[in-house]
Design a protein around this nucleic acid. Sequence first.
DNA 1: TTGAAAGCGCTAACAC
DNA 2: GTGTTAGCGCTTTCAA
Lengths: 344, 344
Amino acid sequence: MSKHNIRLKDIAEELGISIPSVSRALNNKPDIGEHTKKKVFELAEKLHYQRNQFAINFKNQESFIIGVIIPQIVHHFFSNVISGIINEAEKMGYGVMLYQSNESYESELKGVDTFQKSMIDGLIISLADNTFNVDHLENLQEHKVPVVMVDKVNSSMVSSKIICDDYKGAYYATEHLISLGKKRIAHITGSLEPHTTKERFKGFESAIRDYKLTFYPNLIKKCNLVSREEGYITTLSLLAENEIPDAIFCATDPTAIGAIKAIKEKGLRIPEDIAVIGFSDWKMSSIVDPPLSSVSQPDFEMGKKAVELLIKEIQLTRDNKPMKHETHVMETSLVLRESTLGKN
Amino acid sequence: MSKHNIRLKDIAEELGISIPSVSRALNNKPDIGEHTKKKVFELAEKLHYQRNQFAINFKNQESFIIGVIIPQIVHHFFSNVISGIINEAEKMGYGVMLYQSNESYESELKGVDTFQKSMIDGLIISLADNTFNVDHLENLQEHKVPVVMVDKVNSSMVSSKIICDDYKGAYYATEHLISLGKKRIAHITGSLEPHTTKERFKGFESAIRDYKLTFYPNLIKKCNLVSREEGYITTLSLLAENEIPDAIFCATDPTAIGAIKAIKEKGLRIPEDIAVIGFSDWKMSSIVDPPLSSVSQPDFEMGKKAVELLIKEIQLTRDNKPMKHETHVMETSLVLRESTLGKN
DNA sequence: TTGAAAGCGCTAACAC
DNA sequence: GTGTTAGCGCTTTCAA
């Protein structure tokens, strides 16, 4: 291979023309002769010229890179969001840098710092559960890096947001249980700090009240990690109550899967004795026994929409135009399976 | 906010010193006075100076960004590999750009092209199933961008590689079935083009021969997508044979889960009538009924190791030192559950 | 239509 | 220990 990469200078010298002329030709500028242009393109092709993006980024002070921070990659919902982000970004000519916070605020700070160093043009973030302070994000905005929040958002932050209607999803899930004739409905909620689980709890509560069912505080249980293990243990404790529930609405699918395990172990029938419904429709939910009913979120679409909004803001920033923030609320849908419907 | 970002020039002017002095101070160079250094740091702090990485990247012609191309993000194995990559890269001060090929060669080409434009310092790639030509990768290498291949590698390509011992994993899985007294062992393989599934088939074959069992060609079935649906259909066809198998070794967990469904539907017992073992130990494998035995791959570790090798090569490239490629073969381990062991 | 000159922000080489 | 100079590769004035 040649000692150094081909530069405009090399082409210019070989053709005996000036560097700006080569630049103009390769960038298809109008003010360049057809003949010169043709010669330049031919030589560039021959020498395998590749533009030095470092120089261009430096000149324009933009990277065409979007930063993405999510709590975890190994997670059905988030990996789909990322997938949507990457596909859309690619179409728009942007690359995607990824960072996972592992649900840690400190790690999130580090991610923002790393990205700031890499000069991202914009950030898409889904907050860690213990992120309450958003100074790091506002700091980015002040440095003219737009921020779009997805799913786990902070209500006090001024930015565009993509969320899904957790409230309505939870409401419909609960309504579905009620329509099956269930009266003592339990709810396994997550930590109430993230906006999402709080909304799910509120949706549950509203449905119970709207349909004039009794709200049993002892049937509300909290899981911090909303994991399968926690779902299992929590359900066992529910089943140890004097009067057990006849249905459980779980704030996540893993907890619901844990709940199913506990219920089966106790020899109870699903859904006849206890119906179970989850939230997020993880891929694994369709293969548990019985297959789990769940509230499906438009994960891929959320990622796509986030990129759309972000790039719009990046362009406004570049043109020094005033920012308009939008909040997109996306609809969930019920996916009904045997854990509530039974066999046929 | 101020009209432009703070530059070294701004600090230099305000302190009445030269720009290089400010640079030296902020970079903790030895040849700078303590007093000056202190003043510079204080003012930089006060003005919220942030170095312009574009300029630095341009100067050094390096981005501290690693590109990663994998077939799919929404995939238990790959999302874990990515997780390992990101965590390790972060420690080493590198950012990670992600791209998914969706198992398409054309898309993979596009990814390489996008990354080349973003001036990545190195690439980690797991090939799409239909990638046979690696010119795009060799082209990167010629442009001094090291490439490390992970899991789905191309044997003719000269580069560092991280693979896991698919052959041995398959051998042990088959050996395990044999140790249970199984005699008519079926194998559901994937497309034999990827190196990985080929090795799994070879491992299976060797175990059968070594233990002097009969190799039944009609018990070898091929699934191109190695999906749950294909596993289900293929197993139904196996169960329609005159003599059905007493065990099935599936090249992936999803096919094994499909197999379990088919076997259960036919009213056969697992593992008494037919034992089932998969490959990759997907998270969902532990929650199917019965829980699936599988061959576990060190996904996270593979990602981590890939970054180690890649950064080593990046540094050698930077120093214009000769490249040394390594191939790391990582060990799998058997995870035994009820689909082969039965209850207790 | 083309060329000459300047500059993006930073750092390395060289002088003093 | 500090300042001066030059240059990374490219694009964008401005002049011709």
